[in-house]
Nucleic acid binder design. Structure first.
Length: 393
DNA sequence: TCTGGGGTCCTAGGACCC
DNA sequence: TCTGGGGTCCTAGGACCC
């Protein structure tokens, strides 16, 4: 059975949503990023990138802005040097989420088996949807445009890995259908970094052994790759280069963690700015508690993330006996983590994370069940036999 | 012209138990 | 007293993705 998997990717998503709102900016270089300005400043009109000062990165850029070399993830100050006249707009994630639900619903009306890959992309299983592939993919594109006014790019191939590659081939507003026979001509000339899962580090390591294209990677002996990149990743690199991918669509999944973090407008010192840091951390706890309550989860693990002024980052975790969700309980757990963090340097970021999530409903059911025999260590005391063993040692 | 915020998955070491 | 492995949990860090 040959599968028919589509990857659908919205074109310059955040920027395109903003162009719906501000059609007068169409055709201009526009960049999304940075913090929301004051209402007064926003009332005074569009901001030029050159007038921006501060931290932040480019979230999305229109194709006109990309022509100047502006890329997602680039610092805004650097982007301003490349395209000073570009218009800078702050992100409006509520709107992007709403439009995201709209385009996904439009696709689901045609092909209901969908894997969510974030706010602007999905995989769609077309295997059992009647219709010829080209016409079907065009129907999806039309439905998305009809529902949102936005264009997307689609790749259709036998698996997720190839579809993800294919959807990139003719952006924007692309439609690319590939079969396994197309791999040598269409996939092998691409750089290794085009493969989802080969990031900057792996790309550099491959370049160091003179491997630049997927085709070059495909010609390598798998044993050699395993030697260089480890059993798991090495074997995967070989499979990926040959376009082989058996991963099924994940049509539903439970979140593994929920987190909140913030980068400060200026670096803060743990001693001099103690009160402000405390306020920030408590605010993060409150926001995370809201997220947990809204989504219906309790956390059995709480993590603290600290990034220093030099951008070095550390994390401290704390596992809990009893799952929690309130801001107060999060704060207590964060305090435990904080005791294990060196606080001499200035900080640029604080973050907290709720992990090992338990559904609130399921935990309730479990706690309403007849109590089990007390688990050892529940009250923080070592079981008695441990004491005997210790004293006999 | 330094580098956001929200995630997932993998690895590896130590503690602890059998 | 010493020597094992295997399994699980916890913690920390890193690569990668949208």
């Amino acid at each position: 059975m040959t599968h028919r998997i589509a990857h659908l990717d919205m074109d310059a998503y955040f920027a395109s949503v903003e162009l719906l709102r501000y059609p007068e900016l169409r055709g201009q270089p526009v960049v999304i990023g940075g913090r929301r300005r004051t209402a007064l400043a926003e009332a005074q009109g569009f901001q030029r990138l050159s007038t921006y000062a501060g931290r932040g990165v480019v979230t999305t850029a229109t194709y006109e802005a990309r022509a100047f070399g502006v890329r997602s993830g680039m610092g805004l100050m650097k982007a301003a040097a490349l395209a000073p006249e570009a218009i800078l707009l702050p992100g409006d994630y509520e709107t992007y989420s709403r439009v995201s639900r709209t385009f996904k619903a439009a696709v689901a009306a045609i092909a209901p088996r969908i894997e969510d890959r974030g706010i602007d992309e999905i995989y769609v299983d077309l295997t059992d949807v009647p219709g010829e592939t080209q016409a079907l993919a065009q129907r999806l594109k039309d439905a998305v445009r009809q529902a949102t006014g936005l264009s997307c790019s689609i790749g259709v191939t036998p698996n997720k890995l190839l579809s993800k590659l294919a959807s990139e081939l003719q952006k924007p507003d692309g439609l690319t259908i590939l079969t396994l026979e197309d791999i040598p001509a269409r996939i092998w000339p691409l750089p290794c970094s085009a493969i989802n899962g080969i990031g900057p580090k792996a790309t550099a390591r491959l370049a160091a052994i003179r491997i630049h294209t997927i085709g070059e990677l495909a010609q390598l002996d798998p044993a050699f790759l395993v030697e260089h990149f480890g059993k798991s990743y090495g074997a995967w690199l070989h499979e990926a280069a040959h376009g082989r991918d058996e991963r099924p669509l994940a049509t539903s999944r439970e979140p593994k963690s929920i987190s909140r973090e913030t980068t400060f407008e200026r670096d803060l010192h743990p001693k001099q700015d103690r009160e402000e840091l405390t306020r920030i951390l408590l605010h993060l706890c409150e926001r995370l508690a809201e997220d947990l309550a809204r989504k219906g989860y309790l956390a059995r693990n709480v993590g603290l993330k600290v990034r220093y002024a030099d951008f070095s980052t550390l994390t401290r975790d704390h596992a809990l006996e009893v799952p929690i969700a309130s801001a107060d309980a999060l704060r207590d757990a964060v305090r435990t983590c904080l005791k294990r963090v060196p606080l001499e340097q200035r900080l640029r970021l604080l973050g907290i994370r709720a992990g090992m999530l338990v559904r609130t409903t399921e935990y309730r059911l479990q706690s309403e069940a007849p109590p089990r025999v007390a688990e050892p260590g529940l009250f923080g005391d070592p079981p008695p036999y441990a004491v005997v063993r210790t004293s006999s040692a």
